[in-house]
Structure formats: C-alpha cells, structure tokens
Write a protein that binds this DNA or RNA. Structure first.
Length: 180
DNA sequence: AGCGCTACAGTGTTACGTTAAAGGTCTC
DNA sequence: GAGACCTTTAACGTAACACTGTAGCGCT
C-alpha cells in the first residue's frame, strides 16, 4: 500500500510568454518572478496549493500535488485562468503528463540495511549511513528509486505512474521476504 | 617550417530552484 | 527541542563553469 505525497507534471502552451507580464495579469493569490534568483514564474492557485512554474518558452511544471486528481484539477484551473486573459490562446492539446510520482510505503518490520544492501546486490543499492540513513535501491525492472529506512518505512520516487511505484515497492517487499 | 604559448570561440556539463517523503546528525 | 541539512526523482531555462579546438603570434 503506497501513499502518494507528491506528483509532478509538465506541459507546454506552445507559445512564447512574457512571464513578468503574465505574473501581473493572472488572477491568482500568489505569483513570484525574481529573475535574479530564478528565471521561472512561480504561480499558486491557492495559498498552500501546488506550485506551477511557468517558463518563457510556454512550458510549465506543476509540483506539490498530493494526488493525480489534484494535479489534473490544478492544470485545468491554470489553463482556464490563462484562457481568460487577452492575447493568450490555449491549445487544445498541451501534452500535459505526469513526470514523477513520489510516494511512501511501509514494509511493516525493521530491516538490517547493511545485510539488505548485500542481499539485494551492491550494483543496485547504495548505503552510506554516515552520509544518509536510508538505503537507496534502484530496481532494474522498474523506472523508480526507493529509499528504504531501518524501521521499514520507504520513499518511492522517480516513478512515472502510481502503478509503477506500487509494483516497484511490491517487488522490493517480495525480495526482502525472500531474503529472510 | 615547426613548435610552444596565449587568446578566443564553441561545445558540453553542472548547478540552480521547486516539491514531497523518510531518519540521522548537526547547530542553535 | 526546533530547525536545517543530507539523499532521491522529474520537469524546465539560464548561468557559470570546464573542456576542446582553432587561430595567431613569437621564438628557434
């Protein structure tokens, strides 16, 4: 059972944007553009909602959503806000898609990370407790990276879908069980 | 002519910043 | 005790580097 904590998606509007002007025109509670610090325009549709980063090229990223539904809703609302502005024609297809699903899960038991790194294979794991307390596991079969901690809690990141994250964790769980 | 050095142009790589979670370590 | 930092991942464009290749110059 994995719990989604963050979903990152991206799309493109297919047109060049004046992000400084866009930040001033958008009817949203928060925008920030500080080219000295970063060249992207930061937009929030709600005070503590997901963050949208808009680039001059028309490409944009939405990060900080806690579910796929929230991500899609944020995308819809953002596009509606843009289409309400004069001079911006939103294309029917923005190519918006999920790029990264970050989630947490639990094995339900303590694990010896030193022993596990050997059992899983040194070529697919990294464990340096003096640097970071978690074991980094990169399963060959899945596009995801799992951070596993001694208490059995895990973070799955880099997965393109929730299914991949779930499958990757199930795979880890079965491998851990087979090593017991 | 051939070699070595410097200067510059062009290309390639990396860091930045954002988001979330986890647990250990460190500073205040 | 609270908070910051460490690690991982994806997207993105820009800036700052590192590196390579070429041109020009001076010396032998």
């Amino acid at each position: 059972m994995v719990t989604i904590t963050n979903v990152v998606g991206s799309g493109t509007l297919g047109l060049e944007l004046d992000v400084e002007q866009l930040g001033a025109d958008l009817d949203v509670p928060y925008t920030e553009h500080d080219p000295e610090n970063y060249h992207g325009l930061y937009v929030r549709l709600e005070e503590d909602g997901p963050l949208i980063i808009v680039y001059r090229s028309g490409k944009y990223i939405i990060t900080g959503s806690s579910s796929l539904d929230e991500l899609e809703e944020s995308n819809d609302v953002f596009l509606n806000k843009l289409s309400a502005l004069n001079g911006i024609d939103i294309p029917e297809e923005t190519g918006f898609s999920v790029q990264n699903v970050v989630s947490t899960a639990e094995l339900g038991m303590d694990v010896n990370l030193n022993a596990l790194s050997i059992g899983l294979g040194l070529e697919s794991t990294e464990y340096e407790p003096e640097q970071f307390p978690g074991l980094v596991y990169r399963p060959e079969e899945y596009t995801a990276v799992i951070l596993l901690f001694a208490n059995g809690k895990a973070v799955i990141t880099g997965a393109p879908t929730v299914d991949v994250a779930t499958d990757a964790f199930d795979h880890l769980q079965s491998r851990v069980n087979s090593l017991l």
